[in-house]
Amino acid sequence: MPLFEIETEAHIIITWAEGEDEAREVVADAYPHDEVLRLTKRPRDTWVISKGVLGLTTTKIDPCLVARDCLSRSAGDKVNAIRLYRMETGSDLESARRAIESNMVMGW
């Protein structure tokens, strides 16, 4: 049975359904006043939500380790490393630039 992601104005619903019509019925039963904005059949049968993306992790990430990892993955390409750092940490452009540049100076 496929897994569907259904977005309404107020909710994101993840549900198993035989098809799109059945997935819409799930919304109609649970939230009759919500309009379906987006309905997507997921390509796999599992769903993962990163706690880090939601800000639910309690461990502090060492920004230098992240910056060095981003530099390594980008083969020293500063612009790509900044982009990776922003994706990893959710930092703004200026903070990411400072973290990457300061770690480039220290040698990665």
Results as ranks from 00 to 15, higher is better:
T15N: 06
T15I: 13
S50I: 07
C64M: 10
H11P: 03
E35T: 08
H11T: 12
A23C: 08
A28L: 07
A81R: 01
I49G: 01
G52K: 03
G90Y: 02
D29E: 12
D34F: 02
A99Y: 01
K51L: 13
D62L: 04
M87Y: 06
D45L: 11
P63L: 14
V27Q: 00
S91R: 00
P32T: 09
E20G: 07
V53F: 11
L65T: 07
L71I: 13
A67H: 03
G52D: 07
R83G: 10
A99T: 04
V105A: 14
V105P: 02
G52E: 10
L84V: 03
K78S: 11
R38H: 07
A17K: 05
I14V: 15
H33R: 11
N80G: 05
S74W: 03
G90T: 03
Y85F: 15
M104A: 11
A96Y: 00
M106L: 14
D92G: 15
D92P: 00
W16Q: 12
K51F: 09
E94G: 03
I61Y: 02
A23E: 01
W47R: 04
L71Q: 04
S95H: 02
T15W: 04
W16A: 15
L37K: 11
K51D: 08
W108S: 12
H33G: 05
D29T: 13
E25I: 12
M87C: 09
N80D: 11
S74T: 09
W108D: 09
L56G: 07
D21W: 03
A99C: 10
I6M: 02
W16I: 12
R68V: 05
R73A: 15
I61K: 03
S91L: 06
E101W: 01
A10D: 13
C70I: 08
E20P: 08
R68H: 06
E101K: 07
D45H: 11
L39T: 04
L3Q: 10
E88M: 06
V53R: 07
A81L: 03
S50V: 05
A81K: 01
V36M: 00
V27K: 00
K78Y: 05
P2L: 14
G107S: 13
A23P: 02
E9I: 00
C64S: 15
E5R: 12
T40F: 04
M1A: 15
R38M: 03
V27M: 01
G55A: 12
A17I: 12
G52F: 05
M87A: 14
G90D: 04
E101V: 04
E7K: 08
E35N: 11
E101L: 11
T58Y: 06
E88G: 01
K60A: 11
I6W: 00
A30Q: 11
K51G: 12
L56Q: 09
V105D: 14
H33E: 15
K41H: 02
T89D: 06
T57R: 05
D45K: 12
G76D: 07
I13F: 02
R83P: 04
L54Q: 06
